[in-house]
């Protein structure tokens, strides 16, 4: 205490020490109970709610992004499908056209073939008829010629003689 008693400035006054202890402890307990507890709690809660809100917003943003990308994907898929369908349709059309062409060609070829065969048949028939006609006509002509030739008797006699001569030789 002798050191502390050097100067009244640095010698603690017991009365003030006691009063300040009482006042400070009272202040501490009252503020702890009625001020710091609710304030610190409210601050923590508010911070938590802000954090929650921020993370929720972040989540919503992500959800939105996901939805958008999903939509885009769907759109893209739809486009691809449409292209596919169009392509298939085109192919089908081409095939049909091609089929029609080939079948028309074969049909035409067949008909031509048939026509040719018919024509040939007709030609053969016509030629056969012409041959018949020529044969009949030639026979009639030959008959008429022969009749004319063999009207006289001598001529007949010579012919027979010639024929006989030929037989003798054998």
């Amino acid at each position: 205490m002798t050191i502390l008693a050097l100067n009244p400035l640095v010698s603690p006054d017991p009365g003030l020490f006691i009063w300040s202890t009482v006042a400070f402890l009272l202040l501490f307990f009252l503020l702890s109970k009625f001020a710091w507890k609710p304030i610190v709690k409210a601050l923590d809660e508010r911070e938590r709610s802000i954090e929650d809100a921020l993370s929720k917003a972040e989540m919503a943003k992500e959800e939105m992004a996901k939805l958008t990308s999903e939509n885009e994907q769907l759109l893209k898929q739809a486009r691809i499908e449409r292209d596919e369908i169009l392509k298939q349709a085109k192919e089908l059309k081409d095939q049909i056209v091609n089929d029609a062409k080939t079948s028309a060609q074969t049909e035409g070829a067949k008909m031509i073939e048939k026509a040719r065969i018919e024509i040939n048949n007709q030609k053969i028939a016509a030629l056969a008829e012409v041959k018949d006609q020529v044969a009949t006509l030639s026979l009639q002509i030959a008959e008429k010629v022969l009749r004319k030739q063999f009207e006289d008797q001598t001529k007949q006699q010579t012919l027979v003689n010639d024929l006989l001569k030929e037989v003798k030789l054998n």
């Binding site: 202040l27 009252l30 710091w36 507890k37 609710p38 409210a42």
Partner: peptide
């Protein structure tokens, strides 16, 4: 200090969040 901080504490309770 008591007046200031109890009034603030009340404000925190009243205007929660």
């Amino acid at each position: 200090l008591l007046i200031i901080f109890t009034s603030i504490a009340k404000a925190y309770k009243k205007r929660e969040g």
